[in-house]
């Protein structure tokens, strides 16, 4: 049943957020430390063991895949509620800082990724 998949997803989501929250407290940080990332790792692990032991059914997986497919629409809705006015009216310091940072980081990404020779032949697989 697809609901099992969605419930499983919700379980991983909540557990991850909770662990991220606890990790934040343990580190003395007023923020969730990697909760969503932990939830993702949990889901990857659950899928791996579910397949290995055969209790994860294709029908259940549909309940996760539907939400993964909603990802782009949700991101578009997110774009629709960004504070674009504030971002554009921040003055020269705001614009300069953001542009310089994005440029420098893109340069770094390019520099690191150009070194990826060994796995480059696997690219078409994606």
């Amino acid at each position: 049943m697809p609901l099992y998949g969605t419930a499983l997803l919700a379980g991983c989501h909540l557990t991850g957020i909770l662990l991220g929250e606890l990790l934040g407290r343990a580190l003395g940080v007023q923020a969730n430390v990697g909760g969503v990332g932990i939830a993702m790792l949990l889901l990857i692990a659950v899928r791996f063991y579910g397949h290995k032991h055969g209790w994860l059914q294709v029908k259940s997986e549909e309940g996760v895949n539907y939400w993964a497919a909603l990802y782009i629409p949700v991101v578009i809705a997110m774009a629709m509620q960004q504070n674009v006015v504030k971002a554009l009216s921040g003055g020269p310091m705001v614009l300069l800082t953001a542009i310089a940072t994005v440029t420098a980081c893109a340069g770094c990404v390019s520099f690191i990724n150009r070194r990826e020779v060994v796995t480059a032949d696997e690219a078409p697989k994606n």
């Binding site: 997803l9 991983c12 939830a39 909603l70 949700v74």
Partner: peptide, 12 residues
């Protein structure tokens, strides 16, 4: 919902 959808993509 954004985080929920992001977690769901981990299935891939």
């Amino acid at each position: 919902l954004r985080d929920f959808a992001i977690v769901a993509t981990a299935f891939e």
